[in-house]
Simulated scan of single mutants.
Amino acid sequence: MTDRTDHVLLEAMQLAPAERSLVALSLLDSLQGAGESDEAVVASWVAEARARHDALASGQVRGLTTQEFRTWFKSL
């Protein structure tokens, strides 16, 4: 991801769950006009979620603790 993308994502993560859901749905809806069918978009997200889960489960990557995340976020 780019610094800009990281910043937008981190800002969005500060929203209440209902607001994050609205942002996520709005972003997904904005992709619908990109020539992909609903099924293709859903399949892409499912594949991405599985890949991220597998990477975490295998130890290839690790998540951040809350303190690590806060430290990283403050450094932006």
Score class of each variant (00 low, 15 high):
Met1Val: 12
Thr2Gln: 06
Thr2Leu: 05
Thr2Trp: 02
Asp3Phe: 09
Arg4Glu: 15
Arg4Lys: 10
Arg4Gln: 12
Arg4Leu: 12
Arg4Pro: 02
Thr5Tyr: 02
Thr5Ala: 15
Thr5Asn: 10
Asp6Cys: 05
Asp6Pro: 00
Leu9Ser: 12
Leu9Ile: 14
Leu10Trp: 14
Leu10Arg: 12
Glu11Cys: 10
Glu11Ser: 11
Glu11Leu: 15
Glu11Trp: 06
Ala12Ser: 10
Met13Trp: 08
Gln14Thr: 14
Gln14Leu: 14
Leu15His: 02
Leu15Gln: 08
Pro17Val: 03
Pro17Gln: 04
Pro17Ala: 10
Ala18Gly: 07
Ala18Ser: 10
Glu19Pro: 00
Arg20Ala: 04
Arg20Pro: 01
Ser21Tyr: 07
Ser21Asn: 12
Leu22Cys: 07
Ala24Gly: 02
Ala24Glu: 13
Ala24Ile: 09
Leu25Ser: 08
Leu25Val: 09
Ser26Asn: 14
Ser26Ala: 15
Ser26Met: 08
Leu27Gly: 01
Leu28Val: 15
Leu28Met: 13
Leu28Trp: 06
Asp29Trp: 04
Asp29Asn: 13
Ser30Leu: 09
Leu31Ile: 05
Leu31Thr: 02
Gln32Gly: 15
Gln32Asn: 11
Gln32Ala: 13
Gly33Thr: 11
Gly33Glu: 08
Ala34Met: 13
Ala34His: 12
Gly35Ala: 06
Glu36Thr: 05
Ser37Ile: 04
Asp38His: 12
Asp38Glu: 14
Glu39Cys: 01
Glu39Thr: 13
Glu39Gln: 15
Glu39Tyr: 01
Ala40Tyr: 01
Ala40Asp: 14
Val41Cys: 00
Val41Met: 02
Val41Glu: 00
Val41Thr: 02
Val42Gly: 00
Val42Met: 01
Ala43Val: 02
Ala43Leu: 03
Ala43Pro: 00
Ser44Ala: 08
Ser44Thr: 10
Ser44Gly: 11
Trp45Phe: 15
Trp45Gly: 07
Trp45Arg: 07
Val46Ser: 06
Ala47Asn: 12
Ala47Thr: 13
Ala47Met: 08
Ala47Val: 03
Glu48Ile: 09
Glu48Pro: 00
Glu48Arg: 03
Ala51Ile: 13
Arg52Ala: 14
Asp54Tyr: 04
Asp54Asn: 10
Asp54Met: 02
Ala55Ile: 09
Ala55Asn: 06
Ala55Gly: 03
Leu56Ala: 06
Leu56Glu: 06
Ser58Arg: 01
Ser58Asn: 07
Gly59Cys: 02
Gly59Gln: 01
Gln60Ile: 08
Gln60Met: 10
Val61Lys: 07
Val61His: 03
Val61Ala: 04
Val61Glu: 11
Arg62Asp: 07
Arg62Lys: 11
Arg62Ser: 13
Gly63Asn: 07
Gly63Ser: 15
Gly63Lys: 06
Leu64Ile: 10
Thr65Leu: 03
Thr65Ile: 07
Thr65Phe: 01
Thr66Met: 11
Thr66Trp: 05
Gln67Lys: 14
Glu68Ile: 05
Arg70Tyr: 04
Thr71Asn: 09
Trp72Glu: 07
Phe73Pro: 00
Phe73Ala: 12
Lys74Leu: 10
Ser75Phe: 01
Ser75Val: 05
Ser75Gln: 13
Ser75Met: 13
Ser75Asn: 07
Ser75Trp: 03
Leu76Arg: 14
